[in-house]
Design a protein around this nucleic acid. Structure first.
Length: 150
DNA sequence: GCCAACGTTGGC
DNA sequence: GCCAACGTTGGC
């Protein structure tokens, strides 16, 4: 099993939205490195939900991969802002897994706290200039965080 | 809103 | 394939 972190701007999609919807297809990622991580996600993998570009950036909850990544339908939708004419159904470029809600943390683990924690500060999300919206999380980090917040 | 740190694009 | 120009991300 693998562990991941998914960034989202809470003004567009938050952990509360996932809680209400129970599950969602994680569409709209348009970065090749992130795309490759999305394709590597397998059913049963765990994912942290990270809120970015907001008052308190940090980890707000956890979910689970329920469907391996399939071609991202928003890439085929001319009316969608993520429409990508180069991606065809025969030869899709962009992919999206489906994520289920696990739990919302009673308190978020803030980026500030992650950077201040000797064991967590080397997480990819805490590195300078880390702009990837999808990234792997090490098992040790996942377990330590879940021990504290889970 | 600023701006550093990236990623992408496109001319050559 | 280089690299300057440009666009975007995201913490602060």
């Amino acid at each position: 099993m693998n562990y991941w972190l998914l960034k989202t701007e809470p003004t567009s999609y938050s952990i509360e939205d996932l809680q209400k919807e129970k599950k969602t297809t994680w569409t709209g990622v348009r970065n090749y490195q992130a795309r490759n991580f999305l394709r590597d996600m397998k059913k049963g993998d765990k994912v942290f939900v990270y809120h970015s570009s907001c008052e308190i950036p940090g980890l707000f909850g956890v979910g689970e991969v329920v469907t391996d990544a399939l071609p991202d339908p928003t890439a085929f939708d001319k009316k969608d802002s993520h429409f990508e004419p180069k991606s065809t159904k025969e030869n899709p470029i962009w992919f999206a897994p489906t994520i289920s809600f696990g739990k919302k943390f009673s308190e978020p683990l803030t980026l500030f706290q992650i950077k201040a924690d000797a064991e967590l500060k080397n997480m990819m999300v805490a590195q300078q200039g880390s702009r990837l919206s999808v990234m792997p999380v090490e098992k040790e980090h996942f377990q330590k965080i879940m021990k504290t917040l889970g």
